[in-house]
Design a protein around this nucleic acid. Sequence first.
DNA 1: ATCAGTGCAAACGATTTGCACCTCG
DNA 2: CGAGGTGCAAATCGTTTGCACTGAT
Lengths: 147, 147
Amino acid sequence: MWFFVMAEELQYPQGIKWTKQRKKVYELLNEATEPMSAVQIYNSVGQTDKGSYALSTIYRIMTTFEERGLVNKTTWMGDDTVVYELNRGGHKHYAVCLECHKRIPLEHCPFAHIHLEKETGDFTITGHKLELYGYCKECKAREKKEG
Amino acid sequence: MWFFVMAEELQYPQGIKWTKQRKKVYELLNEATEPMSAVQIYNSVGQTDKGSYALSTIYRIMTTFEERGLVNKTTWMGDDTVVYELNRGGHKHYAVCLECHKRIPLEHCPFAHIHLEKETGDFTITGHKLELYGYCKECKAREKKEG
DNA sequence: ATCAGTGCAAACGATTTGCACCTCG
DNA sequence: CGAGGTGCAAATCGTTTGCACTGAT
């Protein structure tokens, strides 16, 4: 008797050449729960694949992905590293600690019930990004102690 | 007869050493209507003062200002340059075009009437930043033409 | 006077690019 | 097979740092 076991197959969006490297990066971003920097991606794919990916390739892939709208490119308040995340339907917002750079995800998007389009006239909004910044519990406590 | 003409004097916040360079940068940011990058600041002060400011000095000044809470440090969606703006009471939000990097100021802060504190538990919010991103009228039009 | 602030040049880290080779479609 | 993608190394850009000197308090 035969059992056909079908693994969950990741679908690669059409319209670009899906090389080994691009697939790998795409998979990685798909599994990632947090946005990743180019170097993080580089290290991650290197770990599983004997470092056969050039860092410059990662950057080029990210540029391509961004142009195709597959990923979003972002930076965080108080930290200038560029990070990329897969452009899933949903989106996340964070509270960012200016001291330790910790990011606390906001459960609900405050914009769920607001109309933004009015504000911007002929601007076509494809997304938005909200960051609260300030200081987390731990850093506040440390600050108090250390003066 | 004497006339005493008093120019509007800019007040420099206390607590730091106000060198010639720091004053100049502070004045510049005070007059600026837009956030400025270190290089923009460098060029601007250079123009009026025979370039006697090192770029590294600008960076060090901006770091100091930031630590003292005099300026806010930011980056824009779709553009990785770090910019600084004087930490005036108010704040601005923008719609950012991913194509031409134009920024359209939003007149009203959508958060005026929303409570954000609940969301974040023990996080002390000192500010927030909102960016809408997408495509401006002109870039949409160009896109259509060029295919 | 003293110590923080500055200029300069060199170091650095992140990102980009030129070129020859490789690979997907 | 051919256009486009990749690896490598060198170049570039923004930012930081070491050190000797200068200047604000």
